[in-house]
């Protein structure tokens, strides 16, 4: 990548490889994802330790988040099926949101790795494709378990002409989901890193705030689209 050579410190596309049998995995992604998961679990454990009828402190925050996720999934999936899928949608939202914000807010650079650098787990294409494929599996499973083979009627509705487009959609959905998230988060990290490299003071701040905004929006978009796809799969056509 000759274009990025002047910014050698950015270390784009370098990974900390761990060998697992004969499989290679990206260690830095797992390290930061464990931090993210740990933070999430800590918050959840602290907030649900003593659930009261009059919520206070962390319980309030968790209930707000819960309510937000419920509204999101109920709106997209529909009253009948949203309960089954709310944990999945919520986990996607929380994981992506905390990953993105963690990538932007935690000073990862202070921790020095032998190769690559820590950052948002969602800035790695593996993570986003994994999440997007889970969404694909989820909506297939949702449709098939709710409607059986009648699920495939969806491909010829409203007319059989739609069949090839709907099949192509099954491939473009995970592709667009994963690349949108990956591209946004990586680009944000790059912009901030490049600005911080060129002008280390003040100038990167607006980009960082914008980055926080995009990070939240991307989490919301991913969760909303996942819920929408599941809702589309379980939707009963009324003739």
């Amino acid at each position: 990548m000759p274009l990025l050579l002047p910014f050698a410190e950015l270390e784009v596309g370098k990974h900390l490889y761990w060998q697992l049998g004969n499989l290679k995995i990206h260690g830095q992604v797992f390290l930061s994802s464990w931090v993210v998961i740990g933070a999430l679990l800590a918050l959840v454990v602290v907030g649900t330790r003593k659930l009261e009828r009059d919520p206070r402190g962390t319980q309030n925050l968790l209930e707000f988040v819960w309510d937000y996720i419920r509204d999101l999934s109920r709106e997209q999936i529909g009253e009948k099926a949203y309960r089954d899928w709310m944990p999945f949608i919520g986990t996607l939202f929380l994981f992506i949101f905390v990953s993105n914000w963690g990538g932007a807010l935690v000073p990862w650079k202070l921790i020095h790795l032998p190769s690559g650098e820590l950052g948002a787990p969602t800035a790695d294409i593996n993570t986003t494709i994994a999440l997007a494929l889970l969404v694909s599996l989820a909506y297939f499973y949702a449709g098939l378990s709710r409607k059986g083979l009648r699920y495939f009627e969806y491909y010829v509705e409203p007319t059989p002409i739609m069949l090839p487009f709907k099949i192509v959609e099954d491939f473009t959905k995970p592709l667009s989901l994963s690349f949108r998230l990956f591209g946004n988060i990586l680009a944000d990290e790059l912009v901030v890193a490049v600005l911080a490299f060129l002008v280390p003071l003040i100038v990167p701040l607006p980009a960082m705030f914008l980055g926080l905004f995009t990070s939240a929006i991307q989490a919301l978009i991913f969760a909303t689209l996942a819920a929408y796809y599941i809702g589309e799969a379980v939707h009963e056509e009324h003739h």
Binding site: L23, I25, H26, N126, T127, I129, A130
Partner: peptide
């Protein structure tokens, strides 16, 4: 760079 990170994640 896609590898075993994907399924494990």
């Amino acid at each position: 760079d896609l590898d075993a990170t994907l399924p494990l994640m």
